[in-house]
Design a protein around this nucleic acid. Structure first.
Lengths: 209, 209
DNA sequence: ATGCAGACTGAATAGCCATTCAGTAAGAAT
DNA sequence: ATTCTTACTGAATGGCTATTCAGTCTGCAT
């Protein structure tokens, strides 16, 4: 058994934990399984994380951080506010089997009983809302978007996507990429005005063939 | 200990189970707690339901059925399609502390691992979509609503409400009754055309002071 | 009255898993 | 080399709860 620094080991454990949650859901997660997959003892996990609950919270933070890094990258990319908003929403949106979403639906359920988890989620959602809301504000400043309240608009847009994720994962509805995109574009037009739609249509032609 | 017919006892147990799930969530549910609240033995619960998992599935069905009965009542009430659609959506919408919704968010999470539960949920959502979609169709026939596909419109509307429920319960966002109503009305207008808004405005003045 | 079906119970049982703990050893520091 | 920190382990332990089981009791049918 090669020893590793605590830091390296923690990251390794978090990665495996997230992988297993994605595969089987949070309630099926066993400390022993994570350990077995890494070929270490279960005691090691507890040694590094103290309790399973804390492991779970940290694992979610870990997953959230990687999501947020991606969001940051999208927001820093060159382009208009319209393309940025749309890129962010498209990436937020559930696609295909929506693997990643199962994690968050589980997290919603767990967070209602775990304050630490709840805080992670509030924070994560806050950052999404701020990022998208911020891009909307830019668009408003440039005169491309129209909205009363950019945060509220962002909330409604992401809420609809959350709901659609539930439709796809829980209710097994198949919603195609194009269909989803069309729904999203409609919604963006309602929220941000018709000039938004035109701005988006241009951006989209560049990124979606 | 007064003895009851199996049927009566089962209903009683289901009621208490749903109450406890609403109060503390599905994962906190203990057979012993349900029994204690009814002042019977835990063995009795198992005697009637065989296993906790089956109890859970039946309890969700029970909750779903009572929701659907209410939906049926709303749909049979006299009034225009516009008032019916709006009444259904208003009732579906999360309000206040949105107690009832915790149950369904839990159910989403559980259903991803339990096929029986998944089926209950698919069915429940199907009936909501059909009911709202049906009322929309009526409205279209009367020329009040305009939409390409009534089921898709119903899906989008209920999806947004699901997402808002998550915002309220998980992310602790306070969305006021009036605000929610305004958002809903906007959305209905987008989905069903502007004559829908007017029709709704009339109906709403009757029911909301 | 008597029997009987079946609702109901108390007291085990048993399985599952997180967590503990006493100790081992790897690698850095000296 | 020796020490020392600390990552790591194997083998308990302990707590929690669903489930079982061997009966008990109740109200109905005969």
């Amino acid at each position: 058994m090669t020893r590793k620094t605590a830091q390296a080991r923690r990251v390794e454990v978090l990665g495996e934990t997230v992988r297993q949650i994605r595969a089987g859901g949070m309630s099926a997660l066993r400390v022993a399984d994570v350990a077995a997959a890494m070929d270490v003892s279960a005691a090691l996990i507890i040694y590094h994380f103290e309790t399973k609950e804390k492991l779970l919270a940290e694992a979610l933070m870990y997953a959230a951080e990687s999501d947020l890094r991606k969001l940051g990258r999208i927001m820093r990319e060159p382009g208009t506010p319209a393309t940025r908003v749309m890129a962010a929403l498209e990436w937020y949106a559930p696609t295909g089997r929506a693997r990643g979403w199962q994690l968050w639906i589980d997290a919603w359920s767990f967070s209602m009983r775990d304050k630490v988890l709840a805080k992670v989620l509030v924070d994560l959602q806050g950052q999404w809302t701020d990022a998208i809301g911020g891009a909307i504000d830019e668009g408003v400043a440039e005169g491309v978007f129209t909205t009363e309240n950019s945060r509220d608009a962002a909330t409604r847009l992401t809420s609809m996507l959350d709901g659609l994720a539930v439709r796809m994962l829980v209710h097994q509805e198949r919603i195609g990429r194009l269909e989803l995109h069309a729904w999203l574009a409609r919604q963006v037009e309602l929220e941000l005005g018709e000039t938004a739609r035109k701005a988006i249509a241009c951006g989209v032609n560049n990124s979606i063939p």
